[in-house]
Amino acid sequence: MRIKIKKESCTGCRLCEQICTIWHYKEINPKKAAIAIEPHFPEPGIFEPKLCVQCGICAKECPVDAIHLEGEAYVLHADECTNCGICVEACPIDVLYTHADVPTPLKCDLCLKCTEVCNTGALTVVRRSD
């Protein structure tokens, strides 16, 4: 299972950012999301959802093994994380985020809440075999 991104369908509403922080932090604060919408305006005039693809490179690079493979998601365990920032640097597509008030990087754990609120098909759930 993974989240498929269809960027041409993204409208930049950022509901995915909203629900991500409400679900994980019980807060209204899209800046704490593990997903970000990157606008490209005025040209070419599209939005680009930037989200972890669960490649696992961050887990390999983590010096304290705080990122565990659980099912199909690499999950960051806050109680083990030292916030050294190595995973953020190591991410090849720059989708591990940070926030000054959160003591660990913000990483997608494949909870799929963003796919439940996306109404345009920009974020959908697919099985690995699809």
Partner: peptide
């Protein structure tokens, strides 16, 4: 049309 565009938190994207 280039793209559909929504305001913050809107799932109707009338823009």
């Amino acid at each position: 049309l280039v793209s559909d565009k929504a305001c913050f938190g809107c799932w109707m994207n009338c823009g």
